[in-house]
Write a protein that binds this DNA or RNA. Structure first.
Length: 492
DNA sequence: TGAAATGTTGGGGCG
DNA sequence: ACGCCCCAACATTTC
């Protein structure tokens, strides 16, 4: 390496604590007096490869990204090395910056999306050819996808043995601290203005409901973890399935953008165990960490099966008789299916950029099984509307529900929206919050308004088909149709 | 990280 | 006292 500055290329690691690439840069700076240039590149040019993910984040993700970058920018200002924002193809932008600053090295934390893997590999070899020190680090996973192997040497395809194998390994290292300061590059490197990127929605501002529910950025992530461990972990084992309660961690967007690392989460749980003594909810902790395990598994799958976002993992499903049903898809997207628990979930998603995981399974089952609409339509909608939209989790999750994925739910496992509603929203609080037009219905009929007698509907001042849709399918019939469709591909 | 259909069991009412 | 029926409640099977 020459004595030029070190570029730290931020991607899905928008934090300064436990950031291995940043730490390595700070260390090099401390040892050799190097300066540091933190950079974020918005690669907006949707490439011809059809690549998805951080190249073309959905609307909700862009809202989050804006605020997360603003927070990171402030944190880096405080450290003394302002964040440089650039738009363009990453390979070109990085090369440009390397040339402009005479950089000696470029450090980053690894991403696992197929296009990112390919892109980063090219960039790394190109930099190394020029004698630039290009180094990548693990900042996003507890275990690298290539480190976890079955006894026969391949990737895992089933979650339980995968996570067991992970837990049998030495636990993840303690998270690193944020550098205390950085020496800024003293040459001239222009940054674009975040506001010019128009990541935020303007008319209409559909993100209004996001602001009071989320605090993007590293500080918000840390606070969320702390609140979760203090207030919800004890109830997590039983409560996590209740969309009417507040017992999930809601860390998903923070994890997606790397505002907090899974290592920090893991050790946060450890610390809580040590400080709380005998009253510690071991079962809740185990279940919570196993959700972190699902995130690991999804990334493992995406890394080893890069076609996961586009094609069926189980190719039997290539012959599955999906229906073309734009009207049904639209009703699902807008929360107008006539099934209260489904509509509640879809409206929560639209209003807040997030949906409770139990309800994600219910609405996904409804789209793929009751409506027989291809899972990729659901995947695309979630990718556009979730603040936590993550290619690995989203693709694996949708294929899991549809039955086409690795370790998937069997296709015949069809959720009954009424039963699920009664079971997991027993008092109807969740449905009443998000489907207010039927809030006056008594609990007995809330999950299935069409079964209410006329006088009950009149009492609630509710006319089905006018104030709230009649169900767009008959669940019993739809279920049989789905089982029938499954039968068609079973033997193939 | 289902649901529905079908099968089994056991208590109580009744002749 | 006994067998019979009914039907929850639970268990098993099937999709």
């Amino acid at each position: 390496m020459g004595d030029g500055p070190v570029i730290v290329w931020f991607r899905q690691d928008l934090r300064i604590a436990d950031n291995p690439a940043l730490s390595a840069a700070a260390k090099a700076a401390g040892a050799d007096g190097r300066t540091v240039i933190p950079v974020f590149v918005l690669d907006d040019a949707a490439p011809d490869t059809g690549a998805k993910g951080d190249l073309c984040p959905g609307g909700a993700s862009r809202w989050w990204l804006h605020h997360s970058l603003a927070a990171l920018g402030e944190a880096l200002d405080d450290l003394g090395a302002p964040l440089v924002l650039r738009r363009g193809r990453a390979a070109e932008v990085i090369q440009e910056l390397v040339d402009a600053a005479g950089a000696a090295a470029v450090f980053w934390n690894r991403c696992y999306e197929p296009h990112a893997v390919a892109r980063d590999r090219k960039i790394k070899s190109s930099l190394q050819d020029q004698g630039i020190g290009a180094r990548s680090f693990n900042g996003a996973l507890l275990f690298e996808p290539w480190e976890i192997e079955t006894s026969s040497g391949g990737p895992y395809r089933v979650y339980t043995p995968f996570w067991k194998a992970c837990l049998a390994r030495p636990g993840p290292e303690a998270p690193g601290r944020a550098p205390e300061s950085l020496k800024a590059y003293d040459g001239k490197i222009e940054s674009e203005a975040l506001d010019d990127w128009t990541l935020l929605p303007d008319r209409p501002n559909w993100a209004q409901g996001f602001e009071d529910r989320w605090t993007p950025g590293e500080a918000g992530a840390r606070a969320r973890l702390g609140d979760f461990l203090d207030e919800a972990l004890a109830d997590y084992a039983d409560g996590r399935d209740r969309p009417d309660k507040d017992f999930t961690s809601r860390l998903s967007p923070h994890l997606h953008f790397g505002e907090i690392s899974p290592r920090q989460v893991w050790h946060g749980v450890e610390r809580a165990r040590q400080t709380s003594g005998s009253g510690f909810p071991e079962q809740g902790a185990r279940k919570f960490l196993s959700e972190i395990g699902w995130r690991e598994f999804c990334h493992h799958l995406l890394f080893h099966f890069p076609t996961l976002p586009h094609g069926n993992y189980n190719d039997k499903f290539d012959d599955f008789p999906w229906r073309n049903d734009p009207g049904g898809l639209r009703a699902w997207q807008t929360g107008q299916t006539g099934f209260p628990i489904v509509d509640a979930g879809m409206r929560q998603l639209w209003a807040t950029g997030w949906m409770h995981n139990r309800v994600r399974m219910i609405v996904a089952s409804f789209l793929t099984k009751d409506l027989l609409v291809h899972w990729r339509h659901g995947e695309a909608w979630f990718r556009d509307t979730l603040v936590d939209a993550d290619l690995a989790n989203n693709a694996a999750g949708w294929q899991w529900v549809a039955g086409s994925g690795a370790d998937a739910a069997p296709y015949f496992r069809v959720f009954n929206p009424m039963t699920q509603g009664k079971k997991f929203d027993p008092d109807g609080d969740y449905v009443r919050e998000w489907v207010p037009e039927i809030a006056a219905l008594p609990g007995k009929y809330l999950q299935a308004p069409w079964t209410a007698p006329d006088d009950v509907l009149a009492e609630a001042e509710l006319e089905l088909g006018r104030d709230y849709p009649k169900p767009i399918v008959d669940h019993k019939t739809a279920r049989e149709r789905a089982l029938d469709a499954y039968g068609q591909i079973k033997g193939s």
